[in-house]
Structure formats: structure tokens, C-alpha cells
Design a protein around this nucleic acid. Sequence first.
DNA 1: ATGTGC
Length: 480
Amino acid sequence: MQPKNLQRVFAALAREGLHVERDGRIYRVRLKDVEGAPAGEVLLPDEFPVEAKALRQLAGLAALRHPAGGGVTTVRASPDFHPGDAGVAIGSIVETEGIVVPAAVGTDINCGMRLHVVDLTAEELLAKRDVLVERLKGDYFFSSRDLPMTAEAMQGLFREGLIGWLSAVRRRPLGQLARADLDQLEREIDRVHLGGALDGDPRWAPEDLVPAEGVVRDGGLATIGGGNHFVEIQVVEEVVDRARARQWDVRAGQVAIMIHSGSRGVGKHVGALWRDRARGMWPKGQKFPPEGLFSLSLADQPEAVAGYMQAEATAANYGFLNRLLLAELLRQRLRELFGEVAAPLVYDLPHNITLPVEGPARRWITRKGACPAGAEQPVIIPGSMGAASYLLVGRGSPQLLGSASHGAGRATSRFEMGRRGRETEDLGLAGVDCITLREERRIEEAPAAYKPIGPVIACQVEAGLCDVVARMRPLMTFKA
DNA sequence: ATGTGC
């Protein structure tokens, strides 16, 4: 079955020098006049519309090379592929050799997902819905939370992630962290991708977050952030893979907590700094890369490549803690309302990050809105606030370089959703319990803004990228 | 995406 817009999109792209072909669910796109560039490959469910802008961005990414040597070797895109507004399509997975591309990951460094299960049924939880919502509004939209961090904790966090942070907090637990179960947080580090600990350095963090001594009062930690980020309370609707679900502590009928957030202002700080540095270091007199996707080359700027990787890691470490603390605030509220209820971490992982490929340190994979899906590894794919979300297990397939999608994918722009909201079209919000201080957010992020999650999941299971372990349904969604 | 910013 042909998507309706296919011929039109292919013809338009051909006129501007892009060659596109389709082979079942795989689309390949290539810039005709760039010798030796790999084709970008997209996996898309049948009948999903193909967006010209996203294909153009993918072809540009595939053609990146640095004049001093090195370039992009492989480009793939996941089924939630859609155009990005910083020149890189969301859902892009890019392997580079000898270069890193700061703009490929952008400013939303270590945006990712976290999933907990809670030993409560939906009925038990909803019986106290109103008081829970009131308290969480205070926590997430400020005022009632108390999370001061010592200078040592911030330094430890930026330098070595959750491990460094936790050892500093153990020495001097402040505010609500004095009520946290630090032993449990330490045990759960096993369930954070890469141990939530990358080699960073405080020198890359915003200055006000790393004072020489004293306490950071409001470092922006445990904040949800805008756009598609959320904290959602769900119920496990169906367990599909019983053995694995048992192994991961997941049972049908349980409440779940799903968190989608990133490194907030720290990622913005690092991403913008290195985007500008990469531009400034571009060899004089050389043609600029498409979309401002300046790279740093190991051949002539090895210290810049190392510096960027350390800076990205610094921001990524903050992203891991941001999600951990969003969950910890919720766990503390649940304890207040329901007593000592268990709420173990299932998994936490980034879908916006550059990681080295095993072997000699000259190849990297950047995922921009694509979830790592290594063999036997938990994969978390959220649907919209009106649709199911999924816990899956990865299969390490090379088709998307060991990745899966990071969601259903946006179908309609924020701007267009605003217009539809004013026309009072049906945005799929019936029955959705969305808690936010901004009415426009509810509209921009309404279920109708997203593609259907079902075909996105089915397409990836059929392609052998991952298998479903459990499906969750939303009970209430917090959006900043 | 962003304590959004020409």
C-alpha cells in the first residue's frame, strides 16, 4: 500500500537533487551530487506519511564530512522519524568515524525515559488522586519541594554522575534527601543505563551550579521541562512476556511511573557552547556543512573531540539525576499517602546522546530521539498522554544500529495544534487527566498531535528490533 | 528542546 503523498514527495526531492527509493517499509535517501556519502535509511510503518523536510535533513546528515578527515559512515532513522527544528530529524541514528557532531545531539542532551512500578492498584491510587495531585503540583511546579545540593554533590554529579553525587549526599544529606532511602538509590544504579555515570567535568557546567563551597538552592533539578516532557502515572494494562516481566518486577494491574525528561538548562548550555565552538573551529575557506552541522575532527582537533565528549557527558550526568529526583519526589509523596509502598526502578535510559562504539576510540553513535535497544536490554517507548506506553526488550538488531524509536513521533506541529485548538477540533483529550499550569501545553501535546503508537510498536517488533514485555495505560500526566 | 527570544 502506497502512502498517499509518496509520489509528490519523491518528485519534489528529486528536483532539489535528492534521490529517494522505497523498498517495503525501508526508505533510502541520498544527495545525488555527494560522492561516496552513505544513504540515510528510514524504517516506517505502512501508510505513514513521509515528510520531505525530514528526508532532506537525513540526507544532509549522511553527507557530512570534515575537510581534515573523518565523516558520517551510517545513518538510520526510527519509525517516529519527523523533522527537527535544529537541522537534524528526530529519530536519527548516526555513526561517525573520526568526527563528532555537537549539533547532531543538539541541546536536549540526555533526554530520556525512566520507569518505576508501584505496589498499588490503580483503584487504590485513584482513591487519593486529588490529594496526590495537589502535592505533586507543589513539587513539580515548585514551592513545596526542598532539594538543596552541596557544592560537593554538584561537583561529584558533573564529574562522575550518580555515583559521585550519591557519595557526596551520603556525607551530607540535605532537605528532602534526608528522607530518601539512599541504599535503595545505590542499588538501583544497576538499572540505569551506563550506571548513570559518564566521565564529565564541572568546568563544562553553568558556573552558578558549581560554587566552590556552600549549597546550591535551586539548581533546576527535579524539573520536568517543556515540550513533550512529562511525568505520568500509569497502570500496567497487560503483561506480554511474563518471564521477563517477573525478572524486572513488573506485574499486570500495578501502578507505574513513567518519566520523560532531560538535562534542562545544563544541556542547553553545553550544546550551544559546542555548537558555536565547532563553527568557530571549522577550517578557514572550506564550504560550510548543510544546516550548520559543524563537526570536530580527530585528525586536526583531537583535544576538541575529547572536550566535547566530556562536556556532553557532564550534561548527561545531570539528566540522569534530574529523572532520578523527579521519581524520588513522587516516591516520597506515595509514602506519605500510602505508607511504605515499594516503587522500584525498572530502568532509566537516554534517547538523546553520543556514545563511543566498542573498539578503538574513533567511532561514535549519536542517537537523536532514538532509544538504545541492545540485546536483552529494557526499552521504554511512550505513547501520547491519551495512548498506551510500552516496556520492551531490545534485540540488538544492526538494522537501526541497536536502536528503537523513542516514542510515536509528532504528527502535527505545535503551531498547527494551536490553530486546531482554537477551531475546537477534537484533539483526543476526552478522558485524559492532564495536570499543567499552561492551557496551551495541553493543546500542543494533545493525543491528536502524535502518530498512533500501535503501528510504530508493531513495525519495530516485526522488524526484529525489540519485543513487547508490557503495555501501560495513562492515569494522569503532569506537564510543565 | 531551552529559566525559550529578533
